[in-house]
Nucleic acid binder design. Structure first.
Length: 891
RNA sequence: GGGCGAAUAGCUCAGCUGGGAGAGCAUCGGCCUUACAAGCCGAGGGUCACAGGUUCGAUCCCUGUUUCGCCCACCA
């Protein structure tokens, strides 16, 4: 490869992405190209970003999520819609608090050393300093968010929205404070929602303990995995129809270690088959026991405090950590001979999704949202099609989940977050719930008011995101233009955490859906289908990929992988493959640029009405039109992978492989009109392709676009391609298909006979069909140059010489005389295989055609197709036999 | 236990409402042919998991089985 060649062109030989990406992104920013438009009369298109945690760093899931959003946003912006993409971050209560607490721990401090206010200041300081990481990383990805509208869930405006909603729901009776059993994380000091608890299968023990009857007449064996909770037992439960225990009706149980006497209750919840069929009941420390306790009016005895340490109610065990207590309780029971047996036991243990500490179910006062009435509105909106889910496999899951929904515990015992806007009057105990802090108690006038110390679940503010980011509760122009948003793009794992709650809040507060469509994309896994995790070491870091392969290649890969499935197996090799594609496009542009440099951009008008143009031009324009239609349809239906594959196929295998090769002779021609026509169509196709692909690969398309002839504004402001009716030309496509088949067929003959690629051949085409013959004659020069043929004879009939390479496409016989170059044995073998295949196929077709049922029931067109097939197979069989006969003579 | 999803070429995956199996990568052969060797031209490779059923016709619809994955609930 020579350096001299390169000098002829203005573009470097290989696409160098890093400088180009940086340069263009800065320019887009400085030109405010991402700014939302609110022109009257245009359709609007809006997306709110799923706000990443402010503590977050860009992982591959974000990369996928935001690439898909950017693809849609850029598409709609080019279509001329009023397009808005709102960026922002989530304050991520526990996660952020943990980060800062870790920082403090490094200074040997806890948050309690600082106190609440100082700690929160410290978190804000951290946010100002480090919180922007993921935003900058999104910029590397090319995200075209309207950055001037960046929001944070703890911003003043959004916090106001949170309080407004809280107060409204409270006053409507949809928020209440209640005693409830919650999942308590003793490390994070907070209650966790059910879906914040992860259940890992864990090896544990199942302890079978003897509970003596109060009258000393015997004992019943109960089984538990958490023996320390027995200190809080307030009953033993058995199934009402369990014959084994009918006699217990009048017997009390003397609880070991404490000597308390507890009753036996009869409850259908108890599984007779499990263990002994007797269940110890600890209403204060077990979800199911809590329910049993309610049904039988049992006392709730809390034996642990918020740190997981046994409290005074645990008597002599007070002050022990729950796990230490477990060991000692077991030892004590053993000493008294009350352990029946201890088994190894695998069970699911609930763990905190943030810190993996074993969760302790416990009772406490918490705030709740009554979600049933809200859920009903969401379900109705989905049922009525006001919100559509893509892929549609999610409907069932959605409905099932919404039916079983339980009240939402929204209070969290941490400091970082929206503090609950409720105050208790120290004098008269009145609970005051207001948007702004009250000065005095409205009932007694006392100024001794204490605000709730709990903050709200982070998802509470996220649920308001689609309207809080647009300025609610103010009635802003943004709300008027952009709410409801067009589509929400997110990962399916937060369908219920977040998506469903946005539906509820949007419908209830705004009286309108928050978005029309929900596109749920897959989870990205490694190439073996494993979850990516730091500990497994299989993480693919988007920023590393961007540096290695370029943002465009990376984005194209994510788009290509985004089929409507549930998982994506990311393989780095694919990224490299698409990097080559970007390079291919780049080189096609170099080639175009070499010819178009001096061209007047106005020449594209020649392509507007292609009737008079030569075949290849009409063909590529027709294919382009189909491609545009395909890409638009795919984009409109969120079939992102189709967007990628349709454009890939067109650019590489039609535009580059065939069109560019075919028009070289035109571009180098002495005839001015031939040259101009070629330039006109070449430029047209280049422009359309760049615009078509810009949403997916913004950088390379902008760079090439800027190099094309003429003074050019950013491609971002160019209009998205539309199909052009005049371009559709099925005749040109059929004709071109014939030529391509003939050319490929002749090339195959060359290759199989091992003719050197630079050697010329003589070729003959036997073509009985007059129309086809006319076409072949017309384009004989093109065929000759594409297959390196010194001569090309086209005949209506003829005899195939014995020592000729032979092929058959679309009824045309391809003949290449090859003296002594044919691998006779090899060819014969191949033909024999072919023959077997054809015969099998023929049998099938004939069988079908002789079936009266088929003839009568199948559509006309299908039957006709089968008939054609039969004729074709018979011809091919005959030609195969002829070829075999010919070759046999050469042996 | 309940629900959902997947099973198609060596690998990663497409295949819309049933009518002759596709792509990319990998493999094999040949080429520095004037945009691209990060390339070009060719080739091989699949009982569409298995068993039934519906149908003139099933990769596609139905039933069951197997394997894998996920979600929900957790029998203490």
């Amino acid at each position: 490869m020579s350096i001299q060649k390169t000098e002829k062109y203005d573009l470097p030989k290989a696409y160098e992405f890093s400088e180009i990406e940086q340069r263009w992104y800065e320019r887009w920013l400085s030109e405010k190209s991402f700014r939302a438009r609110t022109d009257d009369g245009r359709p609007s298109f809006s997306i709110v970003i799923p706000p990443p945690n402010v503590t977050g760093v860009l992982h591959i899931g974000h990369a996928l999520n935001n690439t898909l959003q950017d693809v849609l946003v850029r598409y709609h912006r080019m279509k001329g819609d009023n397009t808005l993409w709102v960026p922002g971050t989530d304050h991520a209560g526990i996660a952020t608090q943990n980060v800062v607490e870790r920082q403090l721990a490094g200074e040997k401090l806890s948050r309690h050393d600082l106190g609440r206010e100082a700690f929160i200041e410290r978190v804000w300081a951290w946010k100002e300093e480090k919180g922007g990481t993921i935003i900058n990383q999104l910029k590397r990805l090319g995200a075209s968010c309207d950055w001037d509208r960046e929001r944070f869930t703890m911003d003043e405006g959004l916090s106001r929205a949170v309080r407004e909603v809280f107060v409204r729901l409270y006053k409507e009776g949809l928020i209440y404070k209640g005693d409830y059993i919650v999942n308590w994380c003793p490390r994070c000091h907070t209650a966790l929602a059910d879906d914040e608890v992860e259940h890992d299968p864990t090896e544990g023990k199942l302890y079978h303990i003897r509970y003596p009857y109060a009258d000393g007449s015997g004992y019943v064996v109960v089984a538990t995995t958490r023996p320390e909770t027995m200190l809080g037992d307030t009953a033993v439960a058995v199934h009402p129809e369990d014959e084994r225990y009918q006699h217990l009706k009048s017997v009390g149980i003397s609880l070991p270690l404490t000597g308390r006497v507890v009753p036996v209750v009869f409850d259908h919840h108890v599984q007779r088959e499990f263990g002994t069929g007797a269940l110890k009941v600890t209403p204060a420390h077990d979800r199911d026991d809590y329910e049993i306790g309610l049904r039988h009016d049992l006392p709730r005895l809390k034996v642990m405090d918020d740190l997981g340490v046994m409290n005074e109610a645990a008597g002599v065990y007070a002050g022990l950590d729950r796990f230490a207590c477990r060991r000692i309780v077991v030892a004590d029971l053993e000493a008294q001979g009350l352990i029946d047996k201890i088994e190894d036991y695998q069970h699911a243990v609930g763990k905190c999704y943030r810190c993996a500490t074993v969760v302790e179910p416990t009772t406490s006062k918490q705030w709740f949202v009554s979600v049933k009435p809200l859920a009903a509105k969401a379900v109705a909106a989905v049922e009525e099609g006001r919100i559509k889910l893509y892929p549609n496999t999610w409907y069932r899951t959605f409905y099932a989940w919404m039916e079983n929904i339980r009240d939402w515990c929204i209070s969290r015992q941490i400091w970082w977050g929206h503090r609950i806007p409720a105050w208790t009057c120290e004098e008269c105990r009145k609970l005051i719930v207001e948007v702004e802090a009250p000065d005095v108690c409205p009932d007694c006038g006392s100024t001794r008011l204490n605000q709730e110390s709990d903050v709200l679940d982070t998802w509470f503010s996220s649920a308001l995101w689609p309207f809080s980011t647009l300025g609610w509760p103010e009635q802003t122009r943004e709300l008027a233009v952009f709410y409801p948003t067009s589509v929400l793009i997110t990962s399916f794992d937060i369908l219920f955490f977040w998506v469903a709650r946005m539906m509820m809040m949007g419908l209830h507060i705004m009286n309108e859906v928050p978005f029309h469509d929900v596109y749920l994309h897959a989870l990205v896994r490694d190439k073996y289908g494993k979850k990516m995790s730091k500990s497994t070491g299989n993480v693919i870091d988007p920023l590393v990929m961007i540096e290695q392969y370029g943002t465009d290649a990376f984005r194209f890969t994510l788009t290509a992988f985004a089929a409507q499935g549930r998982e994506i197996r990311m393989d780095e090799e694919r990224i490299d493959g698409y990097r080559r594609f970007i390079n291919k496009l780049w080189n096609a542009a170099r080639f175009a640029q070499m010819h178009l440099k001096e061209a007047d951009p106005g020449i594209t008008e020649l392509a507007a009405e292609p009737k008079g143009l030569s075949l290849a031009h009409r063909w590529i324009l027709s294919r382009l039109s189909t491609t545009i239609a395909g890409v638009r349809e795919a984009l409109d239906n969120y079939n992102f992978n189709d967007v990628a594959s349709i454009s890939y196929q067109f650019v590489w295998h039609e535009f580059c492989d065939w069109y560019l090769e075919w028009i070289k002779s035109d571009l180098f021609s002495e005839e001015l009109t031939r040259r101009d026509e070629a330039k006109a169509v070449l430029l047209t196709v280049m422009e359309q392709v760049l615009k078509l692909m810009h949403p997916v690969i913004p950088f390379v398309t902008e760079e090439i676009w800027s190099q094309l002839p003429g003074r050019r504004d950013s491609i971002m402001r160019a209009s998205f391609p539309e199909t052009v009716e005049q371009w559709t030309d099925t005749r040109a496509e059929t004709t071109m298909n014939l030529l391509m088949d003939v050319i490929s067929g002749l090339r195959t003959i060359r290759t199989e006979a091992e003719v050197h690629p630079s050697a010329n051949i003589e070729a003959m085409l036997i073509c009985p069909d007059e129309e086809q013959r006319r076409i072949l004659e017309q384009y004989a020069d093109g065929i000759r140059s594409m297959v390196r043929a010194a001569s090309l004879r086209i005949e209506a009939s003829g005899v195939v010489p014995d020592d000729a390479g032979h092929g058959l496409v679309q009824g045309v016989e391809l003949v290449v005389p090859l003296k002594g170059m044919i691998d006779v044995a090899g060819e014969l073998e191949k033909l024999a295989r072919e023959q077997v295949k054809l015969q099998k196929e023929l049998e099938r077709v004939v069988g079908k055609l002789s079936n009266a049922q088929f003839i009568n029931n199948a559509p006309e067109a299908v039957v006709a197709k089968e008939r054609d097939k039969e004729t074709e197979i018979r011809t091919r069989l005959a030609k195969t036999a002829e070829s075999m006969e010919r070759l046999s003579k050469l042996r």
